[in-house]
Nucleic acid binder design. Structure first.
Ligand SMILES: [Mn+2]
Ligand SMILES: [Mn+2]
Ligand SMILES: [Mn+2]
Ligand SMILES: [Mn+2]
Lengths: 227, 227
DNA sequence: GAGTTTATTTAGGGATACCTAAAATTTTTT
DNA sequence: AAAAAATTTTAGGTATCCCTAAATAAACTC
């Protein structure tokens, strides 16, 4: 039947599939299992269920992973909009730090009403990005266009502005904000060491050199300044 | 073991038991079943489970219903504090009407962190009562003292101030606010009709007579003005 | 205090929603 | 075409919450 009730867990599956398919064609069972911290067999079971819903919210093909159907994508964007608006709201209105918002938003995103969503969106002036620079889908679920590259692909001489930092790791977020690396920060790449993929860089306005390993630089997304 | 994780359903049981035992010695199985909309046998099963938790959160005696233990009362007050702070927050900060806050709060109360609780309490200036006049337990879970009588016990000639209105029925709340009957409204009882228990009364400052039946007047709580 | 009524418990199920380990299968790599 | 890797199936499990019908216990009434 149409309009199946969706559980929190299903919403988390949809978010994960959305995330993976933003960089891959389809999301594999193992990728999903890894990301959600469950066994692959659990994922297979769930995917088959999601493909049986009418209308199907995923396109599942045995041994070739899943992609979201248009219906599934809408539902994923709905949850993502909730999550990112809530993060913004916690930071702007309740004074949370940027490393404290993700966990709370992960719980609240499944529970708030459309009314709540609309009211915080209005209170925040319909923001297009959350505290980590993640784009917030509009009310009609259009994702704001944005093109960024991972910092790890930058090379010496290039200058770039930080657009986005992955928000799952609070410790990393605290570390980066201590270094002054947050969305809108201007960076200059000074050195690249191919052996360990470390990047040495400077925050605009400071002389200090900062060295970051690939574990970190792959979680930061930037836009290169035109030379 | 200590520190069992409590489900949302259990939190709802605790709230219900707290509510019933505010006017009765113990809460009977059937009262709880009625209030939660489940079968009496389901309640019995749940109560036995709650009494088995270490430490027990209810004192359950076959055929004599339950009362909360100190531990259970703490947990109930914790949820009630969440609920009422959230209601206040929705009304004061997000601009909800007083009849719209209850449902949203009923979902959010189970999900917010202590951090969230503290931040909205601070943002609201540590309120002692919610939009319906319900007392909000303090951070250390003391219920603010308040003594009120149901409006239905008032008689002609008495004057009283509205302290509290039961918040479960949004339609009634809308009706009452149209009549100007909200917490802090001063009322004067004009007439009592013993046959149907109707009360005729005036809102201070208005000439208009308002007639309310017992279904409504038993949901409004007041403090009598000293004559 | 015996019978009636009401409240509660027992006994037995069912649904949902999720999970895992190990064996079997399919796909990919070499 | 083997071997390796990824995926699926099988078989079974956990936890939570809820239900009805019938038996039992307690409370109430006369
Ligand atoms: Mn929404
Ligand atoms: Mn974010
Ligand atoms: Mn609390
Ligand atoms: Mn209330």
């Amino acid at each position: 039947m149409m309009d199946e009730k969706i559980t929190h867990t299903v919403e988390d599956y949809l978010k994960t599939i959305y995330d993976i398919t933003s960089t891959h064609d389809r999301a594999s069972t193992n990728q999903i299992a890894e990301s959600l911290g469950v066994a692959p067999a659990s994922v297979t079971g769930m995917l088959k269920k999601l493909a049986e819903i009418d209308p199907p919210i995923v396109d599942y093909q045995r041994h070739r992973g899943v992609a979201l159907t248009p219906e599934g994508e809408k539902m994923a964007l709905e949850v993502i909009r909730h999550h990112r608006l809530i993060e913004m709201f916690l930071q702007q209105i309740l004074g949370y730090k940027w490393d404290e918002v993700h966990g709370e938003a992960d719980r609240l995103e499944h529970v708030i009403s459309e009314e709540f969503e609309e009211r915080i969106a209005r209170a925040l002036g319909d923001p297009s990005h959350d505290p980590h620079g993640d784009p917030i889908p509009s009310k009609d679920l259009q994702m704001p266009p944005s093109s960024f590259l991972p910092l790890c692909e930058m090379r010496p001489g290039q200058e770039a502005v930080v657009l986005r930092v992955r928000d799952e790791n609070p410790e990393m977020l605290r570390y980066l904000s201590e270094l002054g690396i947050i969305p809108n920060t201007d960076l200059k790449i000074v050195e690249y060491s191919p052996l360990d993929d470390n990047l040495s860089l400077q925050v605009s306005g400071s002389e200090k050199r900062i060295v970051l390993g690939p574990r970190i630089t792959s979680e930061i997304y930037v836009k290169v300044n035109p030379a």
